[in-house]
Simulated scan of single mutants.
Amino acid sequence: MTRTKTYAALLRGINVGGNRKVPMAELRTLIEGLGHLGVRTYLQSGQAVFTTPHGDEDSLAAELTEAVENHFGFRVDLLVRDHAYFRAIVDACPFPAADLEPRQLHVTYYSTPVDETRFSDLDRTAFLPEDFRLGDRALYLYAPEGLGRSKLAETLSKPRHTKNLIATTRNWNTALKLTELTAP
């Protein structure tokens, strides 16, 4: 019997302001066409959950990246992660998530591990009360006024902090939902 595993693909920068449109129904059909099962999408901002008996995070990300580019005609950076990863991210949150509004807490998922040296040029005290902490291929951002008003989020997304990385940010509600949707 072949064992299957459930993953979520996080597509970066789609369906924002009418640009780089990726209809979720088409994305589901595309992923199903690759032989993956139980394909579901969450919101319009690029989360697709699927089950598959083959591949790993990196090979699935490469496969989906190529398929999306071939189908939609533009390249989309994306990450693929499994339930264990999402569960660990939620469990390791260094901020009091239960005491915060979900709009105040975000997770930036990275393609590879990052360390503090990437952010050594930041005067973190200049952004207080905003703050961030690093996790496993992730950055947790506390932005009390929300992401749209966050000066720290704006600074963290600059190319010098994301060079040679795929980075995509989700709010805490989405982080929790991805954990739920990928559960075995």
Results as ranks from 00 to 15, higher is better:
108 T>D: 07
162 T>N: 12
28 R>C: 04
160 R>S: 05
93 C>V: 06
125 T>I: 01
93 C>G: 05
97 A>S: 12
184 P>Y: 07
148 G>S: 13
183 A>H: 15
25 A>Y: 00
136 D>I: 10
62 A>Y: 00
32 E>G: 08
51 T>V: 09
176 L>V: 04
86 F>K: 03
174 T>H: 07
28 R>I: 03
11 L>F: 09
151 K>P: 01
114 V>F: 10
142 Y>L: 15
158 K>W: 05
112 T>Q: 15
49 V>K: 02
127 F>I: 00
18 G>A: 08
51 T>Y: 01
23 P>Q: 04
170 R>Y: 07
96 P>G: 09
84 A>P: 01
106 H>W: 13
172 W>I: 05
22 V>C: 02
121 D>L: 11
96 P>Y: 08
147 L>D: 12
156 L>A: 07
179 T>M: 14
88 A>T: 12
81 R>D: 07
1 M>H: 11
178 L>E: 05
177 K>A: 11
126 A>P: 00
118 R>V: 13
8 A>P: 01
132 F>R: 05
142 Y>Q: 04
124 R>I: 14
114 V>I: 15
119 F>E: 10
77 D>L: 05
146 G>Y: 12
154 E>R: 13
182 T>K: 05
158 K>H: 14
133 R>K: 14
13 G>F: 03
47 Q>P: 00
30 L>Q: 06
155 T>V: 14
27 L>H: 01
130 E>Q: 10
151 K>A: 15
61 A>R: 11
8 A>H: 04
145 E>W: 04
38 G>Q: 15
115 D>K: 08
135 G>M: 08
106 H>K: 04
148 G>Y: 13
55 G>D: 08
69 E>I: 00
50 F>A: 03
115 D>M: 03
147 L>A: 15
170 R>I: 06
135 G>C: 11
50 F>C: 02
179 T>C: 13
129 P>H: 07
99 D>G: 05
171 N>A: 09
65 T>W: 00
77 D>T: 04
41 T>R: 03
127 F>P: 00
180 E>P: 00
72 F>N: 02
116 E>V: 11
68 V>L: 13
28 R>Q: 10
123 D>G: 02
136 D>F: 10
102 P>Y: 10
16 V>P: 06
116 E>C: 00
72 F>W: 03
92 A>N: 12
80 V>W: 06
27 L>M: 09
36 H>R: 12
61 A>Q: 08
54 H>G: 07
161 H>K: 10
75 R>G: 03
96 P>F: 06
24 M>H: 09
141 L>C: 11
153 A>Y: 13
26 E>R: 03
34 L>C: 10
170 R>H: 09
93 C>F: 04
27 L>A: 11
37 L>G: 11
138 A>G: 08
85 Y>V: 06
4 T>S: 15
106 H>E: 12
109 Y>P: 02
175 A>V: 13
28 R>H: 01
13 G>R: 10
169 T>E: 09
72 F>D: 02
7 Y>R: 03
177 K>Y: 01
2 T>G: 05
174 T>V: 10
105 L>N: 10
27 L>G: 00
56 D>C: 07
11 L>E: 01
45 S>I: 01
149 R>T: 02
125 T>N: 11
17 G>I: 05
154 E>K: 12
147 L>R: 14
23 P>T: 02
14 I>R: 01
76 V>M: 04
159 P>D: 14
165 L>R: 07
173 N>C: 03
9 A>K: 02
51 T>D: 14
131 D>L: 04
15 N>C: 05
66 E>F: 02
82 D>S: 12
146 G>E: 13
92 A>D: 15
33 G>E: 09
